[in-house]
Nucleic acid binder design. Structure first.
Length: 204
DNA sequence: AAACGGATGGGCT
DNA sequence: GCCCATCCGTTTG
């Protein structure tokens, strides 16, 4: 596992959105370590009306105009947060929304965080992080981590050792491109990316 | 299987 | 006052 270098975040936003697929999001808290493999992303570009930053800098979207490789976490629908990786040179206002993870480590912690008081039903692994707000809850991400750098802990991104020690096979995958989910404004652009056939993707 | 509505509160015109 | 990069339980076909 190697930390994604600063250089990684200097690529164009769409490339970052694609290249983030298969990388590992790691979060270390007192409760323990949780790790998820990114399986679904969406790119938000400066010139697109669907992008929070498209109408200029405000108090909320300010992190999007900050340095790339940092977190942009916003509050949505009165109860949830979504997690983005800031991209583009400082001042651009672009980001990549992380929409789904494949749980790798700390599944018990994730399930504990995700279970509601009333919800007695067991959550299978692929249901823990198959949505932008779900993964934020499962990973223990809060608004306190807004603006923080992802190039150092406790919340950071790593490249995966795609080499499987058991089989010797590379963890190859193909990427599906679709329009983004849940947005109203702007043209239906092909800016959503996910790992083909992965059960942890939020929606086909 | 799909459609629907309630939860719940900050952001922005 | 309406919108919202969501989720979940319930209802409907």
């Amino acid at each position: 596992m190697k930390l994604l270098p600063k250089k990684f975040y200097q690529q164009p936003t769409i490339k970052i959105a694609r290249n983030l697929l298969g990388t590992l999001l790691v979060h270390d808290l007192a409760e323990g370590r949780t790790v998820g493999r990114i399986v679904e992303t969406e790119a938000y570009l400066a010139n697109d009306p669907a992008c929070h930053a498209s109408r200029g800098e405000t108090k909320r979207n300010q992190p999007m105009f900050g340095p790339p490789g940092h977190a942009y976490i916003y509050f949505i629908y009165g109860m949830y947060h979504c997690f983005n990786v800031v991209t583009g040179p400082r001042g651009t206002g672009e980001a990549v929304l992380i929409r789904a993870l494949e749980p790798i480590e700390g599944l018990e912690i994730m399930e504990k965080r995700r279970k509601r008081q009333k919800n007695r039903t067991h959550l299978s692994p692929h249901q823990l992080c198959n949505g932008p707000a779900k993964l934020v809850i499962a990973m223990g991400i809060t608004s306190a981590m807004n603006r923080l750098s992802l190039l150092k802990g406790p919340l950071a991104l790593f490249s995966q050792d795609s080499f499987n020690q058991e089989t010797g096979i590379q963890g190859a995958f193909s990427i599906v491109t679709t329009t983004r989910i849940g947005i109203q404004e702007g043209a239906p652009l092909p800016l959503r990316f996910y790992l083909k056939g992965n059960p942890c993707v939020s929606r086909k």
